[in-house]
Design a protein around this nucleic acid. Sequence first.
RNA 1: CGGAGAGUAGCGCAGUCUGGUAGCGCGUUUGGUUCGGGACCAAAAGGCCAUGGGUUCAAAUCCCAUCUCUCCGACCA
Length: 575
Amino acid sequence: MRWSKMLITTLRDNPQDAEIDSHKLLVRAGLVRKLTGGLYTFLPLGLRALHKVTRIVREEMDRAGAQEILMPALQPSELWEKSGRLVTMGPNMFTLKDRAERLMALGPTHEEVVTDLITGLLNSYRQLPCTVYQIQTKFRDEIRPRFGLMRSKEFIMKDAYSFDTSYDAADQSYLAMYNAYKRIFSRCGLSAYPVEADTGDIGGKWSHEFMVLADAGEDGIVSCPECGYAANLERAERQVAVATAETECPAIEPIDTPNAHTIDELVRFLKCKPRQLIKTLIYMVDGKPVALLVPGDRDVNELKVRRLLGAKKVELANDATVEEITGAPVGFAGPVGLANPVDIYADQSLRGASDRITGANRADTHLLHVDLARDANVKEFLDLVIVKSHDACPHCGKPVEIKRGIEVGHVFKLGTKYTEAFQTKYLDEKGAPQLMVMGCYGIGVTRTLQAVIEQSHDENGIIWPISVAPAHVALLSLDPQDDSVKAVVDMLERELESRGVEVIVDDREERPGVKFKDADLIGFPIRVVVGAKGLAKGGVEIKERTSKDFELVPAEGAVEAIEQKVRSLFAKLEA
RNA sequence: CGGAGAGUAGCGCAGUCUGGUAGCGCGUUUGGUUCGGGACCAAAAGGCCAUGGGUUCAAAUCCCAUCUCUCCGACCA
């Protein structure tokens, strides 16, 4: 393939609207072009790389025994009513009406469609287990698309769904996908690792996310270097020391704290430590106000609250509600003496908390010497807070670390959430109808592509792992007019292509520097340089994108040497 | 949706405060000199200054409204 004939436009400057390196490089290397926020066109080079990823995904899905299907992106909204997700997923969905005024949705995911499909398709234990997958464009009306392909309104997802006769059997299907995922990401040259995750709107009992470590990642990952525990920050738990026997707590004493609304202000004013304070936050849980108590140096994890209280929606109450519940302006809430008592939940670390400072539910006043057991009516002690670095690992008690990561895949044990809603049953050996047990498994294909770039680049550009590179080899013809150079270039292109090595020949009338810069920017794993000078010195130059030096190989032996290099780069990824 | 910033040539930007002929660099086209890590000289093409409305003799510039994009929070592959 000839560079001069291809639609390749590299940019010297970073695009003004890109923030993270991978996004800048996607645009600068001419892989994608933005149409508008959250919508991108894949240009030839970008599409080639994307196809590499989808091919790997396909191969590994097939190897794991999943069967490829293709479901409609356009779906009737009744399906979503049936599963009850029109409410939870609703705002994220693009909906429209057909000419008969029927409400339709552009699929953000396909649990509904696939469950509906299987319900009518399979009805015997003999047909199970069954795992199907598709690679398809998904649509989500993201509140804030960002970072290029990382979070966009339209993206390509591989979604797979498993159907089994029992929870044990479903565990096997889950494991098969889990292992396939590990292979997929390592074949893409990514170091992705699984962490425990929240199941969110998809639902189900248990899930793992596959995370690519990157500072630009949107997720926090809690991990324990000691025992290997790893979880999404949203999900992560911590061990809490058993409350020691407290000394006798003095009687409650109000204290004036003018204008001290925040923990910081209080700490400065009272000259105490944040952990001596108890933060009282009024939350709306499915429309009902509750009070949540956490230590002064902690933040509430709203996802945990949602899960523990079995709620659909959890949000901080507005100022008016806070004033109504506490009888005081925002900033002075406390568990003792609420004007309109509500259910009080406290973080587990506050069990036995004594001699603490809380708001007094009165303007500019706090209470000293509060003993939760004695003075407050706590309904339940729960794990409510966001884990911090150095917290105790929930498994082994050693301090945990917090890193950032990009979620490239997510596997869920769904159980019967959807098969129940759709009455997806099979007949067992005794002829009795049973609900199927489901799992679902997603990979953000376009996001994975960007994650590769985020994890593998330098100041000169992308460093493609050979498995996903737009082409294996960039063949630079430094003197396109020179007959001997031309002869070698033509021979190499022909021979390499006949052996299945993908080559892009830079045959442009450009100075060498331009070609070197572009080859580095786009990030071809192998660079072959043919120039009059090199030929005079004895041959062509072969260089890996990752190394500084090149090998000079006689033109006659170059094809073998290049093919060898391609093979060994692939072998490294398989290892 | 809340908070912050930005829309001027394909890309990156100046000009806006203080109204008066729309500019620079890269890229593109043509000619020439160059040619192993983003060359140089000369010439050229390319703009409804986001949109709509005002103010003014005169608006990229001042005022009002709208739209779009980017960043920080909640959502997610």
